[in-house]
Amino acid sequence: MSTPVVEALSPAATQAVAAKVLTGAWSGRALVKLLGELEKWDVVIEAKKAKMNKLWIGSMIGAFVGFILMFVLFPYGIALFLIPFVLIFIFKKQLNGLEAADIPDELRKSVRPVLKQLGQDLHPEEKIKGTIQLTGIDESRCKLKKDLPPGHNRSLKLSVYETEVCDLRLPLADGSTAVLRLNNTFHKLERSYRTTRGKCKSKTKWKKAVTATAMLIPPVRWNWEPARMQKYVDKVNEKLSFAEKNGVMAARLDRYYKFKGIGNAPVATVPAEDIMKLFVRLSGMRPAGGTR
């Protein structure tokens, strides 16, 4: 599949687009800037995708009309069918290339705004470490594929894709470390059946389950005060836990989301405000006084 030419991107962004992953250590500003570049790249790709999609649909309509005209204007009318017919494949190939180059929306809607808002909290000298995946749903990430028991005249196929969108460790100015993780699990349910008239039909349903994890690892042992924020923890969709990390007790808040889509995988993602609220609540459990 052809990948669009990378224009006006910095070497780091070019490398990230090519490798489809961002790994390493960055200062807060550098990472926000790099993600900003990738965001612009994503916007350009989205626009190109929309244009290519229109061309693809146009060529299909053209091929249909050409097919009818072919008989009316035979033999010269063959060209009217063949040209749009060939274009269908060319545009589809280019559309696939653009879809492969597309960057997940989590980067634009979740990760970058959070990093921007936490910009003043970051340690001025230490660096953010971690990984950000730039691929969406990929066959290599398919964890499960199975045929479900079929009913009358139909088949059910379930595919599960798992992606860890990001795992970032953010050193904060007071010596503690904030950890941000986003995990996506896509459930694709393909159902095909035969109607009473003998037509084969198929429907694809998608479910996207996202787990947003915020963790706060203190620099020294803290006596967390969870009682203060307990009432603000959603008992259905959130889970508060504490775990021993490197000799200190880390506080962790997970939030679970579910999004649905028919035909295409849902593009909705965790709002940045929700991630910030996870961190704010964890921060609100710090022991009062003497922590900064």
């Binding site: 003043q120 909290d121 904030a178 910030m276 961190f279 704010v280 900064r292």
Partner: peptide, 8 residues
């Protein structure tokens, strides 16, 4: 006061 989590 700067910051959101670590205000100073």
């Amino acid at each position: 006061q700067m910051g959101v989590l670590v205000m100073r």
